[in-house]
């Protein structure tokens, strides 16, 4: 009879947690946060290196949900829905911040490579494999980086990525193909330096 006390178990499926949240259960929001706060913060940190900005945006997102909780729909996939909402709000926030402080440098990951020359120099000068590979990754455009993150780190399908980034499915396929081309073309320059002992 242990299971009688209030507990907000990990077993509660997303759709039920979301339904309870919509119906006024504040604790259900905490269940959702325990599950998705880390992924949201991680994804969000790619748009801005300012962690407090990302956290504030997540907070405002959920405050918005609380305000119109009765009008919220039931998304097919909660995580994708949260990603999409955070992405929209965060891009707006980052733009706003850039407008207010145009000089401030932002070392977010999903940003355009500023100087392609630097990247090439980095590739040629570095004998460290990890540095070479990270400069290769940095040479991708911000959209390519984002697609890589969603596809490979978050294991989202092309359809899901299209939904989150609000682009069509063909664009996702194109972005992925572009990335793989960049990788294939540059592997050769990188790989000949690798020593077998470097595998862990």
């Amino acid at each position: 009879m242990e299971d009688l006390h209030v507990h907000h178990g990990d077993d509660l499926p997303d759709n039920l947690a979301w339904k309870m949240f919509r119906e006024g259960d504040d604790q259900a929001m905490n269940v959702i946060l325990q599950r998705y706060f880390r992924p949201l913060l991680h994804y969000g940190s790619k748009f801005s290196a300012d962690r407090s900005l990302v956290e504030d945006t997540i907070q405002d997102l959920f405050l918005g949900f609380l305000e119109k909780r009765q009008d919220l729909g039931s998304p097919a996939n909660l995580k994708n829905y949260l990603f999409k909402c955070l992405r929209n709000n965060l891009i707006r926030q980052v733009k706003e911040k850039a407008r207010l402080k145009p000089i401030e440098e932002d070392d977010a990951l999903f940003t355009e490579p500023t100087n392609i020359q630097d990247i090439i120099m980095g590739l040629e000068n570095s004998h460290e494999m990890s540095q070479r590979i990270s400069s290769l990754f940095l040479s991708l455009t911000k959209r390519q980086k984002e697609v890589m993150f969603l596809r490979y780190y978050e294991n989202r399908s092309n359809d899901e990525i299209a939904e989150i980034m609000d682009i069509n499915k063909q664009s996702v396929s194109n972005l992925l193909a572009q990335c793989l081309t960049v990788l294939r073309e540059n592997w050769v320059h990188i790989l000949f330096l690798l020593l077998p002992s470097q595998i862990k």
């Binding site: 940190s45 990951l109 990890s130 990270s134 780190y153």
Partner: peptide, 11 residues
């Protein structure tokens, strides 16, 4: 190379 690249993707 694949491992290092994936580590970069994740950040």
């Amino acid at each position: 190379a694949a491992r290092l690249f994936l580590k970069s993707v994740a950040g």
